[in-house]
Amino acid sequence: MTGDPLILAIDNGTQSVRALLFDTRGNLVGKGKQDIEAYFSDQPGWAEQHPEYFWDSIGQACQKLWASTEATPGQVAGVTLTTQRGTVVNLDADGQP
């Protein structure tokens, strides 16, 4: 790993996904934000979203992050994920949603 170690924080919110990169002193090094669409529902009172949509949105936020900084993915020493709601994605035997 080259350069100082960094922490990648993924914040999956209700309106966007943010990828934030911090140094070990807590300073923001870079950020990327991908807006996301509101939930949909085929059932009254339900709130749903396709798991692949979240995964793709995280990828887009991370691409924007790496474009915003000179830091490299090889510097990432840890990753954290936060979300505002309880989210469960069931996977099949092949690891697919």
Score class of each variant (00 low, 15 high):
residue 2 T to V: 10
residue 2 T to E: 10
residue 2 T to P: 07
residue 4 D to V: 15
residue 5 P to I: 08
residue 5 P to M: 03
residue 6 L to H: 09
residue 6 L to W: 01
residue 7 I to D: 02
residue 7 I to E: 02
residue 9 A to Q: 09
residue 10 I to C: 05
residue 10 I to A: 03
residue 12 N to C: 10
residue 12 N to S: 10
residue 12 N to R: 01
residue 12 N to P: 00
residue 13 G to C: 01
residue 13 G to T: 04
residue 14 T to H: 12
residue 15 Q to Y: 13
residue 15 Q to H: 08
residue 15 Q to T: 15
residue 16 S to K: 12
residue 16 S to H: 15
residue 16 S to V: 13
residue 17 V to R: 01
residue 18 R to L: 02
residue 18 R to S: 10
residue 20 L to C: 07
residue 20 L to W: 02
residue 20 L to K: 07
residue 21 L to V: 01
residue 21 L to N: 05
residue 21 L to P: 06
residue 21 L to R: 08
residue 21 L to A: 02
residue 22 F to R: 02
residue 23 D to A: 12
residue 23 D to K: 08
residue 25 R to E: 14
residue 27 N to Y: 15
residue 28 L to S: 00
residue 28 L to E: 01
residue 29 V to L: 06
residue 30 G to H: 11
residue 30 G to E: 07
residue 30 G to Y: 07
residue 31 K to W: 06
residue 31 K to I: 13
residue 31 K to P: 01
residue 32 G to T: 05
residue 32 G to R: 08
residue 32 G to V: 07
residue 33 K to L: 13
residue 34 Q to A: 09
residue 34 Q to L: 07
residue 35 D to V: 11
residue 36 I to S: 03
residue 36 I to G: 03
residue 36 I to D: 01
residue 36 I to Y: 03
residue 37 E to S: 15
residue 41 S to R: 03
residue 41 S to I: 00
residue 41 S to N: 09
residue 41 S to D: 04
residue 42 D to L: 15
residue 44 P to L: 13
residue 44 P to I: 15
residue 45 G to V: 05
residue 45 G to W: 09
residue 46 W to I: 04
residue 46 W to D: 12
residue 46 W to R: 14
residue 47 A to L: 09
residue 47 A to M: 04
residue 48 E to H: 07
residue 49 Q to K: 12
residue 49 Q to R: 15
residue 50 H to F: 11
residue 51 P to W: 00
residue 51 P to Y: 00
residue 53 Y to Q: 14
residue 54 F to M: 08
residue 55 W to C: 01
residue 56 D to V: 06
residue 56 D to A: 07
residue 56 D to E: 04
residue 57 S to N: 14
residue 57 S to D: 04
residue 58 I to L: 09
residue 60 Q to M: 10
residue 61 A to Q: 04
residue 61 A to R: 02
residue 61 A to C: 07
residue 62 C to Q: 15
residue 63 Q to E: 15
residue 63 Q to G: 13
residue 64 K to E: 05
residue 64 K to N: 04
residue 64 K to R: 14
residue 65 L to G: 00
residue 65 L to M: 09
residue 67 A to D: 06
residue 67 A to I: 02
residue 69 T to E: 01
residue 69 T to Y: 00
residue 69 T to K: 03
residue 69 T to N: 02
residue 70 E to N: 07
residue 71 A to S: 10
residue 71 A to W: 05
residue 72 T to D: 00
residue 73 P to H: 04
residue 73 P to A: 00
residue 74 G to N: 07
residue 75 Q to P: 08
residue 76 V to W: 08
residue 77 A to S: 08
residue 77 A to Q: 12
residue 77 A to Y: 11
residue 78 G to L: 02
residue 79 V to F: 12
residue 79 V to H: 04
residue 81 L to M: 02
residue 81 L to I: 08
residue 82 T to V: 10
residue 83 T to V: 05
residue 83 T to E: 05
residue 83 T to S: 14
residue 84 Q to K: 11
residue 85 R to I: 00
residue 85 R to P: 01
residue 86 G to Q: 05
residue 86 G to S: 05
residue 86 G to M: 03
residue 87 T to K: 12
residue 88 V to E: 00
residue 88 V to Y: 11
residue 89 V to L: 03
residue 90 N to H: 11
residue 90 N to Y: 13
residue 91 L to P: 02
residue 92 D to L: 06
residue 93 A to D: 12
residue 93 A to G: 06
residue 93 A to Y: 11
residue 93 A to F: 15
residue 94 D to P: 03
residue 94 D to H: 13
residue 97 P to K: 07
residue 97 P to T: 05
